[in-house]
Amino acid sequence: MIRLANSGISIDLPRRWDAQIRSAGGELTSRSASPLAPLDATPSTGSVLHAGSFALPAERGDYGSGAVEVMGGSDILICLLEHEPEAAATALFRREGLPSVGVADFSPESMQRAMPGMSGFQRFFQVAGRPFCLYVVVGHHVTRGPLVRSAHAVVQTISIVPKS
Protein backbone atom coordinates (compact mmCIF):
# COMPACT_ATOMS: atom_id res chain seq x y z
CA MET A 1 0.00 0.00 0.00
CA ILE A 2 1.20 3.50 -0.86
CA ARG A 3 -0.35 6.53 0.81
CA LEU A 4 -1.20 9.52 -1.35
CA ALA A 5 -2.20 12.72 0.43
CA ASN A 6 -3.13 16.26 -0.54
CA SER A 7 -5.61 18.93 0.50
CA GLY A 8 -6.46 17.14 3.74
CA ILE A 9 -7.43 13.96 1.90
CA SER A 10 -5.38 10.78 1.93
CA ILE A 11 -5.83 7.29 0.54
CA ASP A 12 -3.87 4.06 0.67
CA LEU A 13 -3.41 2.61 -2.78
CA PRO A 14 -2.92 -1.05 -3.63
CA ARG A 15 -0.19 -1.99 -6.08
CA ARG A 16 -1.04 -1.31 -9.73
CA TRP A 17 -3.42 1.52 -8.84
CA ASP A 18 -3.20 5.04 -10.24
CA ALA A 19 -4.54 8.02 -8.31
CA GLN A 20 -4.67 11.79 -8.40
CA ILE A 21 -5.85 14.28 -5.80
CA ARG A 22 -6.51 17.62 -7.39
CA SER A 23 -6.37 20.63 -5.12
CA ALA A 24 -9.36 22.93 -5.02
CA GLY A 25 -9.06 25.41 -7.87
CA GLY A 26 -6.83 23.17 -9.95
CA GLU A 27 -7.88 22.69 -13.54
CA LEU A 28 -6.15 19.46 -14.37
CA THR A 29 -9.24 17.85 -15.75
CA SER A 30 -9.96 20.79 -18.04
CA ARG A 31 -13.57 20.75 -16.99
CA SER A 32 -14.67 23.69 -19.03
CA ALA A 33 -12.45 23.10 -22.04
CA SER A 34 -12.80 19.36 -22.33
CA PRO A 35 -15.44 17.83 -24.55
CA LEU A 36 -15.89 15.36 -21.73
CA ALA A 37 -17.31 17.99 -19.44
CA PRO A 38 -20.92 17.86 -20.63
CA LEU A 39 -21.04 14.20 -19.65
CA ASP A 40 -20.46 15.01 -16.03
CA ALA A 41 -22.79 16.26 -13.41
CA THR A 42 -22.12 19.63 -11.83
CA PRO A 43 -18.37 19.78 -11.43
CA SER A 44 -16.85 19.98 -8.03
CA THR A 45 -15.37 23.27 -6.90
CA GLY A 46 -13.32 21.63 -4.20
CA SER A 47 -10.71 18.93 -4.13
CA VAL A 48 -11.19 15.86 -6.30
CA LEU A 49 -9.74 12.40 -5.72
CA HIS A 50 -9.64 9.83 -8.51
CA ALA A 51 -8.26 6.37 -7.85
CA GLY A 52 -8.38 3.51 -10.32
CA SER A 53 -7.09 0.00 -10.70
CA PHE A 54 -6.04 0.95 -14.22
CA ALA A 55 -4.06 3.67 -15.97
CA LEU A 56 -6.03 6.85 -15.40
CA PRO A 57 -6.16 8.99 -18.54
CA ALA A 58 -5.08 12.59 -18.19
CA GLU A 59 -8.35 14.00 -19.44
CA ARG A 60 -11.15 13.10 -17.09
CA GLY A 61 -14.34 14.62 -15.91
CA ASP A 62 -14.89 14.92 -12.18
CA TYR A 63 -17.27 11.96 -12.26
CA GLY A 64 -14.84 9.85 -14.25
CA SER A 65 -15.94 10.49 -17.81
CA GLY A 66 -12.97 9.73 -19.98
CA ALA A 67 -11.83 7.09 -17.50
CA VAL A 68 -14.82 4.75 -17.46
CA GLU A 69 -14.50 4.41 -21.22
CA VAL A 70 -11.10 2.73 -20.85
CA MET A 71 -11.97 0.58 -17.84
CA GLY A 72 -11.83 -3.17 -18.16
CA GLY A 73 -14.39 -5.58 -16.79
CA SER A 74 -12.35 -6.18 -13.65
CA ASP A 75 -11.42 -2.55 -13.00
CA ILE A 76 -12.52 -0.17 -10.28
CA LEU A 77 -12.79 3.63 -10.31
CA ILE A 78 -13.25 5.66 -7.14
CA CYS A 79 -14.17 9.35 -7.35
CA LEU A 80 -14.37 11.58 -4.29
CA LEU A 81 -15.61 15.09 -5.01
CA GLU A 82 -15.67 17.91 -2.52
CA HIS A 83 -18.50 20.42 -2.75
CA GLU A 84 -18.88 24.01 -1.55
CA PRO A 85 -18.56 24.27 2.25
CA GLU A 86 -22.07 25.74 2.47
CA ALA A 87 -23.47 22.49 1.12
CA ALA A 88 -22.59 20.75 4.37
CA ALA A 89 -25.63 22.41 5.93
CA THR A 90 -28.01 20.93 3.38
CA ALA A 91 -30.03 17.74 3.76
CA LEU A 92 -28.20 16.08 0.87
CA PHE A 93 -24.97 15.99 2.85
CA ARG A 94 -26.54 15.25 6.23
CA ARG A 95 -24.86 11.87 6.59
CA GLU A 96 -21.69 11.97 8.70
CA GLY A 97 -18.66 9.84 7.86
CA LEU A 98 -17.44 7.80 4.93
CA PRO A 99 -20.16 5.49 3.63
CA SER A 100 -19.77 1.74 3.36
CA VAL A 101 -19.62 0.41 -0.15
CA GLY A 102 -21.87 -2.65 -0.40
CA VAL A 103 -22.59 -5.05 -3.22
CA ALA A 104 -26.33 -4.43 -3.04
CA ASP A 105 -25.82 -0.68 -3.42
CA PHE A 106 -24.44 -0.95 -6.94
CA SER A 107 -26.62 -0.54 -9.95
CA PRO A 108 -26.15 0.20 -13.65
CA GLU A 109 -28.69 2.98 -13.16
CA SER A 110 -26.35 4.71 -10.72
CA MET A 111 -23.83 5.39 -13.46
CA GLN A 112 -23.40 9.07 -14.32
CA ARG A 113 -23.24 7.89 -17.88
CA ALA A 114 -24.59 4.44 -18.71
CA MET A 115 -21.83 2.09 -19.85
CA PRO A 116 -22.64 -1.46 -20.99
CA GLY A 117 -22.04 -3.97 -18.23
CA MET A 118 -20.76 -1.48 -15.68
CA SER A 119 -22.25 -0.63 -12.33
CA GLY A 120 -22.12 2.45 -10.14
CA PHE A 121 -22.62 3.68 -6.61
CA GLN A 122 -23.07 7.23 -5.32
CA ARG A 123 -23.44 8.65 -1.83
CA PHE A 124 -23.32 12.17 -0.38
CA PHE A 125 -21.88 12.76 3.06
CA GLN A 126 -19.71 15.07 5.11
CA VAL A 127 -16.58 14.63 7.19
CA ALA A 128 -15.20 17.31 9.47
CA GLY A 129 -17.65 19.77 8.01
CA ARG A 130 -16.49 19.11 4.47
CA PRO A 131 -19.24 17.91 2.10
CA PHE A 132 -18.36 15.17 -0.37
CA CYS A 133 -19.82 12.92 -3.01
CA LEU A 134 -18.39 9.41 -3.27
CA TYR A 135 -18.89 7.84 -6.68
CA VAL A 136 -17.60 4.34 -7.38
CA VAL A 137 -17.73 2.39 -10.65
CA VAL A 138 -16.95 -1.28 -11.12
CA GLY A 139 -16.32 -2.73 -14.56
CA HIS A 140 -18.81 -5.58 -14.47
CA HIS A 141 -22.20 -5.54 -12.74
CA VAL A 142 -22.79 -9.29 -12.89
CA THR A 143 -19.46 -10.19 -11.31
CA ARG A 144 -19.32 -7.11 -9.09
CA GLY A 145 -19.01 -8.93 -5.76
CA PRO A 146 -15.21 -9.18 -5.45
CA LEU A 147 -14.79 -5.83 -7.18
CA VAL A 148 -17.06 -4.08 -4.70
CA ARG A 149 -15.27 -5.68 -1.79
CA SER A 150 -11.95 -4.44 -3.17
CA ALA A 151 -13.42 -0.99 -3.70
CA HIS A 152 -14.77 -0.96 -0.15
CA ALA A 153 -11.37 -1.89 1.24
CA VAL A 154 -9.74 1.02 -0.58
CA VAL A 155 -12.51 3.50 0.30
CA GLN A 156 -12.11 2.66 3.97
CA THR A 157 -8.49 3.83 3.81
CA ILE A 158 -9.60 7.34 2.83
CA SER A 159 -8.91 9.84 5.54
CA ILE A 160 -10.26 13.39 5.59
CA VAL A 161 -9.17 16.09 8.00
CA PRO A 162 -10.71 19.53 8.56
CA LYS A 163 -9.51 22.30 6.30
CA SER A 164 -6.99 24.50 8.03
Binding site: W17, Q20, I21, G26, L28, A55
Partner: peptide, 16 residues
Amino acid sequence: LPLGGAARVAVTGVGH
Protein backbone atom coordinates in the same frame (compact mmCIF):
# COMPACT_ATOMS: atom_id res chain seq x y z
CA LEU B 1 0.52 17.83 -10.29
CA PRO B 2 1.56 21.01 -12.12
CA LEU B 3 -1.70 22.77 -11.26
CA GLY B 4 -1.81 21.60 -7.69
CA GLY B 5 -2.41 18.23 -6.16
CA ALA B 6 -0.75 14.87 -5.84
CA ALA B 7 -0.47 11.92 -8.19
CA ARG B 8 0.51 8.32 -8.18
CA VAL B 9 1.35 6.56 -11.47
CA ALA B 10 1.78 2.79 -11.45
CA VAL B 11 4.28 1.52 -13.99
CA THR B 12 5.16 -1.85 -12.42
CA GLY B 13 2.89 -4.85 -12.24
CA VAL B 14 0.61 -3.35 -14.87
CA GLY B 15 -0.24 -4.98 -18.18
CA HIS B 16 1.12 -2.26 -20.44
